[in-house]
Simulated scan of single mutants.
Amino acid sequence: MSDNSLRLVWIYPDLLSTYGDQGNALVVERRARQRGLDVQRLDVRSDQQIPTSGDIYLIGGGEDRPQRLASERLIRDGRLNRAVSNGAIVFSVCAGYQILGHEFINDLGERQQGVGLLDVVSTRGEAERCVGDVLADIDPQLGLPPLTGFENHQGVTHLGKTARPFAKVRFGKGNGVGDGYEGAYNDTVFGTYMHGPVMARNPHIADLLIKLALDVNALPPVEDRWYEALRQERIAAATQPA
């Protein structure tokens, strides 16, 4: 990657793009362009090969059958794993988050292999579905303000030894395990259950991905505070008594 360009890949919008998750790609693209970067965005459908030359890869959520199909095709394709081994950044949401792990429960009620980029395993929760606004504190090592988002999932995700919790939940269910954690990440791969789309509520996450892709410690500031009103509104909604 050159110093003034960013290659952004949106994976399988025909299978994985619920609750406005494609908005994540729009926000990353906008935040990068505001810093003067030349953004090359590629939307890759499920009948196309994943390019290995991307800098940031985004995966959204989806229903159970599309999730199974997406996982099968990503494994068969193999190029996302190759891109990560070359240093690419990946951010995934809900079904996409589960796909990045070792396995999840598919629409047939069977254990389905994931692509293994995150040390997590997802099962089907026995309790009520996790639905509603979430407020969580992102891992302090990432240096980001609180996370706000919307969750809607039956899955329960267990973190392995090499996966770090993305955030600690104040309100909401998060991974659904009962340990109070939400999402997971390692050095370059991130997963969350948060919709919203999550980047619109938390554009600082988009900035983090851009910094990691550019391998820089900071980005030039931008005069763009439209999202703060939305953040405060949703944080207030999450903290109000039911």
Rank of each mutant, 00 (worst) to 15 (best):
C130F: 14
L117K: 06
R164L: 14
A213F: 03
T52L: 09
L212D: 01
E103R: 14
V134I: 15
V134T: 14
P221D: 14
Q22P: 01
Y181T: 15
T157V: 15
G176I: 05
K173W: 09
L15K: 01
A167N: 02
S46H: 10
L147D: 02
G132Y: 02
Q22I: 13
I205Y: 05
G96N: 03
E223Q: 14
P140A: 09
T188V: 13
P241Q: 14
R124P: 04
T148I: 15
D77V: 06
E63D: 10
T192L: 08
S53Y: 13
N186D: 13
E126S: 14
D107I: 04
G183I: 00
L219S: 05
G174S: 12
T18I: 15
Q48D: 09
V134R: 06
D64C: 05
D187F: 03
E29L: 07
A136Q: 04
E182T: 02
A200F: 11
V84Q: 03
C130R: 13
T18N: 09
Y181A: 09
R33S: 13
D64I: 00
A25T: 02
V115P: 02
R73T: 11
A83G: 03
R45W: 13
L80S: 08
R33C: 13
L6G: 05
R30G: 06
A25C: 07
D207P: 02
S53G: 11
V222C: 10
V84P: 00
Q49V: 12
E233Y: 14
A136F: 09
L118C: 11
I56W: 02
Q40T: 12
R31M: 09
D14S: 05
V156S: 01
R33W: 08
Y227E: 13
L74N: 04
L74T: 02
A236Q: 13
A136N: 04
R31K: 10
Q98S: 08
V90C: 09
D224A: 13
L147T: 01
G155L: 01
S46C: 09
D55G: 04
R201L: 14
L74G: 05
P197F: 05
G23I: 06
I11Y: 00
D3A: 15
L16M: 13
D21S: 02
R33N: 10
F171P: 00
K168N: 12
G62N: 07
L6P: 03
L208R: 08
E110C: 11
A95L: 09
V134L: 15
L15T: 01
L58I: 11
L209E: 07
L118D: 06
K161E: 15
W226G: 12
V198A: 10
V39E: 01
D3V: 12
Q34T: 08
V169C: 05
W10E: 02
G87T: 12
G172A: 12
R41G: 04
R73K: 15
R45C: 14
A218V: 11
I56C: 04
I11F: 02
I210A: 03
G109R: 07
A95K: 04
E110N: 14
F150C: 01
P197I: 07
L230K: 05
L135E: 03
Q22L: 12
L108H: 14
L6V: 08
W10K: 03
D139T: 08
V222F: 07
S122P: 01
